[in-house]
Design a protein around this nucleic acid. Structure first.
Lengths: 192, 192
DNA sequence: CAGAGAAGTGGACTACAGTCCGGTTATGCC
DNA sequence: GGCATAACCGGACTGTAGTCCACTTCTCTG
């Protein structure tokens, strides 16, 4: 046990909740792109400085909004039932099955919040690769590709396919079903 | 023969050259990110309006600067010697060889101008997928993947790996050699 | 409860992308 | 050469991301 890490001040907590609330509403109503940070701040009854201090930038705000769902997915991967999670020791799924399950689950998540994820990945240059989430997915996929010549590199390649910016654009061309199929096919090719 | 398409006015041509010159120099000296459009305009002795009218946005300016090299690569693919190009009819390379050659050549091009390509792809949202170049690469790869279940979708997936933003980030993690190897391995897996 | 200092606040400020439009100039035609 | 007109020019203007810092508020300690 160590001394409690400095607790968040009450006013700060209140403001954070207000901002997340306001942002969620505004984004739903006008689309993520159609809402400026200033508008969010005003709607939350908070100064611009406060907003940026808390969330860093628009990507950070989007990330915060996704936090809950993202965590749920990560939990499911780490501790949940097979094939997404490791499952009970006596009946653990193959790496291939788990990879498949991960891609399906991630695509569900991504397609369900495409605009928000896209902002969280692109609002700041290189944002996608700096946030913890990417590292998590990358690590997971890397482990599932163990045995291949270069799992780390292959995991990056596979994840490139899941970049929100890419998915958004490709969706217009081939639609969700073919995108899904192609992603799974690619994973299959990598785990042969 | 049709009536000559309205020729570019002399002053416009002069200004365009001045802008490209100034931009090339400034970008070399201060990096692409470190130069504002206003600075480019000033250095070229041109108004901001002119700059934007001509090139649309920063992505457009970057694209224009890359134009020559990009065209060269496209020419080589369409008409050049094998294995990058189709080569003479009697000794045409396999699709697999051509794909391999394309990826090598594209990576050379990309790594040689990473910052510029990155701006051209990301300065405007979705820019990468709107410009003609992406369509060209996609079409080429699609043709080389003929016979697979869904060449169009697979080509998108393979090209995702070559997005400048992705490459820029991954480079820091695994370096150019492993990136190259992984890309080729992926292509191999797709043409088995 | 009082005082100190850390944490938080908000709005003025800067910098940059991109738009707009009244004025200018090249060009093709007579 | 002179004129009509379409193309072009440039800089003032707008909207937004993100920074800065003098001031306020909370929390902890004695």
């Amino acid at each position: 046990m160590r001394t409690t890490p400095p607790r968040e001040r009450a006013d700060a907590a209140r403001n954070r909740a207000a901002v997340l609330d306001a942002a969620a509403t505004l984004f739903r109503e006008h689309g993520v792109e159609g809402v400026s940070m200033e508008t969010v701040a005003a709607a939350a009854g908070v100064g611009k400085g406060t907003l940026f201090r808390r969330f860093g930038d628009k990507a950070g705000l989007a990330t915060a909004l996704l936090d809950t769902q993202e965590r749920a997915l990560q939990e499911a991967i780490l501790f949940g039932p097979a094939p997404l999670g490791p499952g009970p020791a006596e009946a653990s799924p193959s790496a291939r099955e788990r990879l498949h399950a991960f891609l399906e689950a991630y695509l569900d998540y991504l397609l369900g919040h495409l605009d928000l994820v896209r902002i969280s990945e692109t609002a700041a240059p290189g944002a996608r690769y700096r946030i913890g989430a990417y590292r998590f997915w990358h690590r997971h996929v890397t482990l599932l590709l163990a045995g291949r010549p270069d799992p780390v590199a292959d995991a990056h390649a596979l994840l490139a396919t899941l970049a929100a910016e890419h998915v958004r654009a490709v969706l217009d061309d081939i639609g969700a079903d073919r995108l899904r199929a192609a992603t799974l096919r690619l994973a299959a090719a990598l785990t042969t």
